[in-house]
Amino acid sequence: MLGFLINEREKQEMEYLLKREMDEILFDLKDSRIDHIVKRAMDERYKILFELFKRVASHKDCMKYMKTKRIEQGKS
């Protein structure tokens, strides 16, 4: 187990970067040209990013991305 300390500004930056990356993955999962094997790998990456996101984001933001994730999985 690893741990690190970050200040509020760094927390906000991490939150922003994770949201941006997760949004990009969700967008790409909608693309029918992407192979299902690649989509599965993207989904695994999304799960890892979401676990990190849960550590820094508010409950409201987490619910938003959790809900979106479920919707997207049903479409792919």
Rank of each mutant, 00 (worst) to 15 (best):
residue 21 E to L: 13
residue 42 M to Y: 10
residue 39 K to Q: 06
residue 18 L to E: 01
residue 69 K to G: 07
residue 50 F to M: 10
residue 25 I to N: 04
residue 75 K to T: 08
residue 56 V to I: 11
residue 24 E to L: 13
residue 20 R to W: 07
residue 45 R to T: 06
residue 7 N to S: 08
residue 71 I to G: 05
residue 51 E to K: 06
residue 25 I to E: 00
residue 58 S to L: 04
residue 62 C to D: 02
residue 6 I to W: 01
residue 47 K to V: 12
residue 74 G to A: 14
residue 27 F to V: 08
residue 65 Y to Q: 02
residue 4 F to Q: 07
residue 72 E to P: 00
residue 1 M to Q: 12
residue 36 H to V: 13
residue 50 F to R: 01
residue 26 L to I: 05
residue 72 E to Q: 10
residue 75 K to S: 14
residue 6 I to T: 01
residue 75 K to G: 03
residue 60 K to P: 01
residue 51 E to L: 05
residue 67 K to M: 09
residue 45 R to W: 01
residue 19 K to P: 05
residue 48 I to Y: 08
residue 52 L to G: 02
residue 39 K to H: 09
residue 15 E to C: 07
residue 8 E to L: 08
residue 22 M to V: 10
residue 27 F to C: 10
residue 71 I to L: 13
residue 21 E to T: 08
residue 24 E to Y: 05
residue 32 S to C: 02
residue 37 I to Q: 12
residue 36 H to E: 13
residue 39 K to C: 07
residue 40 R to M: 15
residue 6 I to P: 02
residue 35 D to F: 03
residue 42 M to G: 07
residue 3 G to A: 13
residue 66 M to S: 15
residue 59 H to M: 12
residue 44 E to S: 15
residue 8 E to F: 07
residue 40 R to F: 11
residue 32 S to Y: 07
residue 66 M to K: 14
residue 25 I to D: 00
residue 15 E to H: 03
residue 38 V to R: 15
residue 25 I to P: 01
residue 20 R to H: 11
residue 46 Y to S: 05
residue 68 T to C: 09
residue 17 L to N: 11
residue 9 R to Y: 10
residue 5 L to G: 04
residue 75 K to Y: 12
residue 26 L to V: 03
residue 49 L to M: 11
residue 64 K to H: 06
residue 10 E to K: 11
residue 43 D to I: 10
residue 51 E to M: 10
residue 43 D to N: 11
residue 19 K to S: 10
residue 24 E to C: 07
residue 39 K to M: 04
residue 25 I to L: 12
residue 68 T to R: 13
residue 59 H to Y: 09
residue 59 H to T: 05
residue 41 A to H: 05
residue 2 L to S: 11
residue 35 D to A: 10
residue 41 A to D: 14
residue 16 Y to T: 04
residue 76 S to A: 02
residue 29 L to D: 01
residue 17 L to H: 13
residue 30 K to V: 01
residue 61 D to M: 09
residue 27 F to L: 15
residue 9 R to S: 15
residue 66 M to E: 15
residue 18 L to V: 03
residue 76 S to K: 06
residue 53 F to R: 00
residue 3 G to E: 14
residue 39 K to G: 05
residue 73 Q to L: 13
residue 27 F to A: 15
residue 3 G to S: 15
residue 32 S to P: 06
residue 74 G to C: 09
residue 32 S to N: 05
residue 74 G to W: 04
residue 76 S to T: 03
residue 70 R to I: 05
residue 33 R to N: 14
residue 76 S to G: 11
residue 70 R to K: 13
residue 76 S to N: 07
residue 3 G to W: 06
residue 16 Y to L: 12
residue 69 K to T: 02
residue 60 K to W: 03
residue 42 M to D: 02
residue 4 F to C: 06
residue 63 M to T: 06
residue 30 K to T: 03
residue 31 D to P: 00
